[in-house]
């Protein structure tokens, strides 16, 4: 059953100042007609390069932003319409772990107080119960009393991310949005945090929406993968299928960009001439948004923008590429 559904979601941001008479200014589509659904208890991963709109998707899901068009549906309810008390209730069920753990913690708040804060806001338990719960949460993420009494700047990056994870778990949410949970961390710490997240998912029956630019992280933990490019979902399907048999040239490029330590196992460099530099005009035209970078671009790619369609043979694998259609 789908816990979270994005249904044709568009989010635009104003660019520059509106006209002198308050007329509509220029807008940029950060998220463009994005649709996907996250199944309960599973991990859905969104990948793409920076600026592709995946963090905007995370913020839309966390109700920190409202969609310009389309609907974000959680457990059957329209998230964009939530106000006041209903919004507070939503935030008990949906939590977010931020990309930069140093920035997401108040520098003047001690760790224990940061973890206690969600319980305090939602009026859960008395002082003694809350203190016990904070102790339990810190222990769950591998921290102790000592860390609880510290300020964020006294902790390592990995410890800070553990604090944020403990804080996100405090309200026993159903869905946790992980916005680049390990990209700010040292490589040596990443695996620990990913293992912790996997364990917590199993133990607490959590659903994850994982945002990452690192397709390696995605391969580690995702059930389904969505690939974003310039605000649009260009490919979507089961993780093993998308990662092993990508249908969209952009996904192919992303996978090829993953560094492989062993030179003998590296794939051969891409054949043919390097892609042409981006042509800004394709943006307003009807061309495929990837056409100017695509090594396989055909004439049809410039004439008509491809829609997200099922890839031959699988109903749960979709890609927006003319060349992937049969």
């Amino acid at each position: 059953m789908s816990l979270l559904v994005f249904d044709g979601v568009v989010k635009t941001f104003p660019v520059g100042r509106p006209g002198l008479l308050g007329g509509p200014g220029r807008v940029r589509r950060a998220v463009d007609e994005v649709s996907f659904s996250v199944e309960r208890g599973r991990t859905y991963a969104l990948v793409g390069e920076s600026g592709c709109g995946k963090t905007t998707v995370a913020r839309l899901a966390a109700a920190l932003l409202r969609p310009t068009r389309g609907r974000v549906v959680f457990a059957g309810g329209d998230v964009g319409r939530l106000r006041g008390r209903a919004l507070a209730a939503y935030r008990r069920r949906v939590q977010m772990v931020f990309q930069d753990p140093a920035g997401a913690l108040d520098p003047r708040q001690r760790v224990a107080s940061a973890v206690e804060e969600p319980l305090l806001i939602h009026g859960l338990g008395g002082a003694a119960r809350r203190r016990a719960e904070v102790g339990r949460l810190l222990e769950v993420v591998g921290l102790g009393q000592r860390e609880g009494a510290r300020f964020p700047h006294q902790l390592s990056g990995g410890q800070k991310q553990r604090v944020l994870i403990a804080r996100a778990l405090a309200l026993q949410p159903e869905l946790v949005i992980l916005d680049e949970p390990v990209s700010a961390l040292d490589v040596s710490v990443r695996a620990q945090i990913l293992t912790l997240l996997t364990r917590l998912q199993r133990e607490n029956d959590l659903t994850y929406l994982l945002i990452s630019h690192d397709i390696g992280v995605v391969g580690y933990s995702a059930d389904r993968v969505g690939v974003m490019h310039r605000g649009r979902l260009v490919e979507e399907g089961p993780a093993d299928v998308v990662l092993s048999r990508p249908a969209h040239p952009y996904t192919v490029g992303l996978l090829r960009a993953v560094p492989v330590p062993d030179p003998a196992r590296r794939p051969p460099p891409p054949a043919g001439p390097p892609p042409e530099p981006p042509e800004p005009r394709t943006d307003s035209s009807r061309a495929c948004l990837y056409a100017h970078l695509c090594p396989r671009a055909a004439r049809s790619c410039v004439r008509r923008r491809p829609a997200l369609r099922t890839v031959a043979g699988r109903a749960d694998h979709r890609a927006s590429c003319h060349l992937a259609e049969d």
Partner: peptide, 26 residues
């Protein structure tokens, strides 16, 4: 613009709570 203000909103804090607990102390 700092993330911890958004983070506070994401755990359900209201405007007054954020102002009192996170903005003014800083």
């Amino acid at each position: 613009e700092r993330d911890f203000i958004d983070a506070a909103r994401a755990i359900g804090a209201g405007d007054l709570w954020i102002l009192r607990r996170h903005v003014l102390p800083n």
